[in-house]
Design a protein around this nucleic acid. Structure first.
Lengths: 280, 280
DNA sequence: ATTTTAGTTCCATTATTTGAAACTAGGTTT
DNA sequence: AAACCTAGTTTCAAATAATGGAACTAAAAT
């Protein structure tokens, strides 16, 4: 259990519902829940009241509520690199004609926040929000490699080291060695470690003080691409990552200056603490 | 305050941070918060631990956390109409060459869950997740009009009736009259009620039993479009809405059958209640 | 050096959460 | 039709967590 009092427990329940990936009934949740019936029941009620869950009375099922989509919009546009990186992703994917991913690290996992797909140009939300393992993806390894030792260690312990393919690195020692190479080289490969037939080259997006802001990758299929071709794209990839980092840092200072101008406030997006009137 | 014990209060705080739309400091939040210093402080800590908020130690600011992006992905793909509607939106926007919106109602507000933009084909998350007022948008009115009286009443009281333009309907009576016309006609107009120069035509997406699942609209600028041109598109719009509704209902039954097959579980998305190993 | 401002911690009080058990409503078997 | 499940909901005293005034600390301004 992730601790943190009542809120933490409620979030566990929310995660549990989300993890099913489909509407789910009370009983099914109860089986898999560490909470007793009454407690789980009250949590589900609370979460439903809060519209973090949606309850379908006909089917008697719970699923994740759309209020989260709203909050996520705020997260995506405030906290993620995606809005800043967008023009750079557009330019990069246009120039090289391959699939490009932008990711950040969340709780030891790779969270994809944007994507440009060579084939299908639009993929929407279905890609922003997807998660993947850190220890066997290009972006994951690139980010990990450039992280302070302490954090790296912590994240090592969170990995499952599941062998997706014969190439997957399956323990912390192998991974540590690989990360040293990545730092030396400045970029990471995914050598079919996550999916057979899929390779990728990735670089970290680093702040001027060397903090990892995110990761950027170019992905290809082995039938179309090889490591030499990917290597040839490294300068473009690096340039894009640097441009994203520069823009990200430029953004921060105007924000600080704006800080003193009082609260934009609730009014604007209809979320007063006392919120019953909305829309203005 | 939205009540609901500790979890509700924590969500209020989360909403408050989200409503600022930019990283915000403790003091700024405190000014606008109904909670005493220590209480607000602890909430921020808890939310940060849960990664619902992100704390920037350098700038000492809080912003909405990326974990929400992950949860929202689940919500978008489970609960929203968007994944089901996608092919229909593609087809519709391709056929008519105008901007198309798909929305659902959340807490009396219009929540846009997907969009096809005539000019710019990609807009990503920046559109999925956006919210708008229900009382002065085409989709909002179309959905409201086809809702049971009781719910309609409740939502009426949640509207702010802010006059965005001279055309905006500014009280519940005007709105009620308008809704009766919409039901009679089967579709709603936005006659520059939200933004000057922007008009739209919208229909509800209704389940076979008449329940409002969402709303679908076609938007245009007055300089390019007029009501006659929009009227000509009503059959296409209706057909698309009907197709979406049909697919949405078809989806539900396979899900019920799948219900008995036990839990897909936690493992899959790394969200065990006891989650420390992730990635598989 | 002193004061102010901003953020953090303490801890006795207060309020909420907890969960075993009792209950209710549908559905199924005898 | 009665008895018996099964799944979901409610109750209430005990256990636990949240509360917030006040004291504290760090850093910035005077």
């Amino acid at each position: 259990m992730s601790g943190d009092g009542t809120v933490g427990k409620a979030m566990d329940v929310l995660d549990q519902v989300a993890s099913f990936g489909r509407p789910v009934r009370f009983g099914t949740l109860l089986e898999a829940s560490p909470f007793p019936k009454a407690t789980l029941y009250r949590f589900l009620q609370t979460l439903t009241n809060q519209r973090l869950l949606a309850y379908d009375a006909d089917a008697q099922t719970y699923s994740v509520g759309v209020r989260l989509v709203r909050l996520a919009h705020a997260a995506w546009s405030q906290t993620s690199l995606a809005p800043i990186a967008r023009p750079h992703l557009d330019a990069l994917s246009h120039k090289i004609g391959l699939t490009v991913h932008l990711a950040q690290l969340d709780h030891g996992q790779v969270l994809y926040v944007d994507k440009r797909n060579a084939a299908h140009p639009v993929e929407m939300f279905s890609d922003a929000g997807k998660i993947g393992p850190a220890y066997c993806t290009g972006v994951g390894k690139a980010m990990l490699a450039h992280m302070p030792q302490a954090e790296q260690k912590r994240i090592f312990d969170q990995q499952s080291y599941h062998a997706f393919t014969p190439q997957t690195l399956t323990d912390a020692d192998q991974l540590a060695a690989e990360l040293r190479n990545i730092v030396a080289r400045g970029h990471a490969y995914d050598r079919e470690e996550h999916e057979p037939g899929i390779i990728c080259i990735a670089v970290p997006v680093l702040s001027s003080r060397g903090r990892v802001l995110g990761g950027l990758s170019i992905t290809g299929a082995t039938r179309d691409t090889d490591y030499n071709k990917l290597d040839a794209l490294v300068p473009d990839l690096r340039a894009a990552a640097a441009a994203i980092a520069a823009d990200a840092e430029a953004w921060r200072f105007p924000m600080h200056l704006a800080e003193s101008s009082g609260h934009v406030s609730a009014e604007q997006s209809g979320q007063t603490p006392e919120n019953h009137k909305i829309g203005a």
